[in-house]
């Protein structure tokens, strides 16, 4: 069946971040950074030709940490989806991240696939990025030149293009805990209930004190070339009462924010309509939750 990898390129598996950054600085795009390898191996098995030279990040202690403070959680880029979903601080305070991690492929995939890989692979259909966008996560990137922190919302430039430089590695993702007044909603619409790639996914963080929208972040997967935040929608809703938001307003805003396409899994029309429906459902949920609080 598939060819065994006897024609492999080099396989670097450094034991420290400094060593890894050194290799990355020398080789730049001539090495493919990898951690869980769940995507890399699919490409290879599908006949990608000669093995690339791999920079295996799975053994780096710096990338395998989960640190919690009062403000949020900092998750190492090589932490697996399973470990992430089972971490008490994540489970307690970041329910959308638990949900997205548990829908990143099957259990066997979640055990290997990493949060960093899910970001750096830069697929518009990736499961965790919308949640990270909605929570307002920041990324820490490092190179031999030093490290820097950027807002994840600024990270994806275009299809499979990001702000990461060729000598940089993603070290960690910091996810702030949301305000206790915020409500969150996550829904992935896939091709089936489990082990699916999303047709549409929506992650929402909505802060609506006294029934008026103070801050709302709507992040989508599979609705454009990158995982994206619907900025026009946020602007359109800010200051409006939660009850009685007109679907036409949402439809208009999303027409600006989203650029879905027909592909092998779904249609642009379906995606556009479901996006509106999911937003309206999230608003209705938030409105109901608000009503219960009062």
């Amino acid at each position: 069946m598939s060819v065994q990898a006897s024609a492999a390129g080099e396989w670097h598996r450094p034991g420290s971040l400094a060593e890894a950054l050194d290799i990355r600085a020398r080789a730049k795009d001539a090495v493919v950074p990898a951690a869980g390898c769940t995507d890399l191996m699919v490409g290879w098995n599908a006949g990608a030709g000669r093995w690339p030279t791999v920079l295996d990040l799975s053994a780096l202690p710096e990338l395998n940490r989960i640190d919690v403070d009062d403000a949020g959680v900092t998750i190492g880029a090589a932490v697996s989806c399973s470990r992430l979903a089972n971490h008490p601080a994540v489970a307690g305070r970041l329910p959308m991240l638990v949900a997205s991690a548990r829908q990143t492929g099957s259990v066997a995939i979640q055990n290997r696939a990493t949060l960093g890989g899910n970001i750096m692979n830069a697929s518009p259909a990736a499961d965790n990025p919308p949640v990270l966008l909605a929570y307002g996560a920041r990324l820490t990137l490092a190179s031999t030149r030093g490290s820097r922190s950027i807002d994840y919302a600024d990270f994806h430039l275009d299809y499979k293009r990001t702000r990461a430089e060729p000598d940089e590695l993603l070290v960690s993702v910091t996810v702030p805990f949301p305000s206790p007044y915020a409500s969150v909603h996550y829904r992935k619409v896939g091709t089936r209930r489990a082990q699916a790639i999303s047709k549409v996914a929506l992650s929402v963080l909505l802060d609506a004190g006294a029934g008026v929208v103070r801050e709302a972040r709507f992040a989508f997967a599979s609705m454009g070339p990158v995982p994206l935040l619907a900025g026009s929608l946020s602007a359109a809703l800010r200051g409006r009462p939660l009850a009685g938001i007109d679907p036409a307003l949402v439809t208009r805003a999303l027409a600006t924010d989203l650029s879905p396409r027909d592909d092998i899994r779904s249609t642009a029309d379906y995606r556009r309509q479901v996006a509106v429906n999911l937003v309206m459902a999230a608003i209705a949920d938030a409105s109901a939750a608000e009503a219960r609080r009062n």
């Binding site: 091709t191 089936r192 209930r193 489990a194 082990q195 790639i197 092998i264 899994r265």
Partner: peptide, 24 residues
């Protein structure tokens, strides 16, 4: 089954040809 322009199966992978899982 999604057909490509040559009349063969375009979604000829288990990722894209969706059969029910245990959870469905």
């Amino acid at each position: 089954v999604v057909w490509d322009g040559n009349g063969t199966m375009a979604n000829n992978r288990m990722t894209n040809y969706i059969i029910p899982t245990s959870a469905d």
